[in-house]
Write a protein that binds this DNA or RNA. Structure first.
Lengths: 203, 203
DNA sequence: AAAAATAATGAACAGTGTTCAGTATTCAAA
DNA sequence: TTTGAATACTGAACACTGTTCATTATTTTT
């Protein structure tokens, strides 16, 4: 018994070791510029070893994908303490954009990168994503109860709101904010978000 | 003289030939799954030949990038005939989203893909991008003259508007609309855009 | 201590972008 | 029209990629 559990623990430790190295290099050089050999070298094992713990590069991608959502959800925990629904919505957007700018590469991984849909494990993988989206819908529903968004459909509305913040985050992550030569991306997002909130107030 | 110009014409024809093949395969299999050998095979030349007409894969990318903007700007031409500025703004967003959904891969190339910033030709490359953004700002300014967007900063506002439509387009291009299981992406974008327009009307 | 099970290796495969010595073709001058 | 220079093209080679798998090393069980 004790040895079987130790084995399992060792297996998990090895997965962590690989994941730590992968995260480090992924976030340093990006997904495509990180090779399995790079990761193997980082942990001082042969490339083949990684394949004893992960089916392929995509499975590593998905593991980090999930980690990103866990981090985001953690960052959203404090929102429960905001009593007013609309204030909570405002704070949610702020947290979302903060997460995106502070964890650029995680955000990219989660919402922009082409997620390879090889393994049908996708349903599982997006579990976390749905949790986040559901939370947005919930907050919007609560806002509605307070008189906001009269006659608006929650599904469409949530998509519009999500698109609003995702748009800014995506333009930021993929360096398209540079189109505004003499305005800092941070300022752009901050002021842009103010207008988005303004628009939602009057909808 | 005549032979020198013929040479140049042949050179341009060859570039077109390569570009046509590259576009075809890029849009079929995506940028990363298209190899220089694939393109060479398509035009029945050796891989090395391509490098006599394009510095590297990135230069081909940038050529198509530019083509995308030319296509988009063409699609925007008829907007000049819409007299009311706000109607023009609405139509602009519609055209933008139509372009994105109808030319998914071009849109991806233009606004989502990590544009490699190797060559300092970037200034040139984004010329077209700026033209598009400038047009949006112009329309917004005209709307302002008609009483819309009182006291709003055009730079920030344009960013918010661009983010709104880009967000939808980006979620669509990278398959994140699937988070809404039983709503078609097309419907999502159409209805989401209605809300965005609604919001802009009341801003 | 021997046998079985597990873990790790690293060479090999088929692919990638890119380079460049060598060959074929086209052109200009004699 | 023939010769020498310029141009165009080739395809093997380089250093890389993700992935597999026979072989070797280690650990566990008998």
């Amino acid at each position: 018994m004790t040895i079987a559990t130790r084995k399992q623990r060792e297996k998990e430790e090895m997965r962590s070791l690989i994941l730590d190295a992968a995260r480090k290099i992924f976030l340093e050089k990006g997904y495509h510029d990180t090779s399995m050999r790079n990761i193997a070298e980082e942990i001082q094992y042969s490339p083949g070893t990684i394949y004893l713990y992960f089916r392929d590069k995509d499975e590593i991608f998905h593991a980090l994908h999930e980690e990103g959502f866990r981090r985001m959800l953690t960052k959203m925990q404090p929102l429960g303490h905001v009593s007013s629904p609309f204030e909570r919505l405002k704070a949610l957007g702020k947290v979302y954009l903060e997460f995106a700018t502070e964890n650029k590469d995680f955000y990219d991984l989660m919402f922009i990168m082409q997620a390879p849909i090889k393994h049908e494990a996708d349903h599982e993988q997006w579990e976390m994503g749905h949790q986040t989206l559901d939370y947005l819908k919930q907050v919007l529903t609560e806002c509605k109860k307070e008189g906001y968004f009269k006659g608006k459909n929650i599904e469409y509305l949530s998509f519009a709101v999500w698109s609003g913040v995702h748009g800014m985050a995506a333009l930021y992550c993929r360096e398209r904010c540079k189109a505004y030569h003499d305005i800092e991306p941070g300022e752009l997002i901050e002021e842009g978000y103010k207008y988005l909130v303004n628009m939602l107030e009057n909808l």
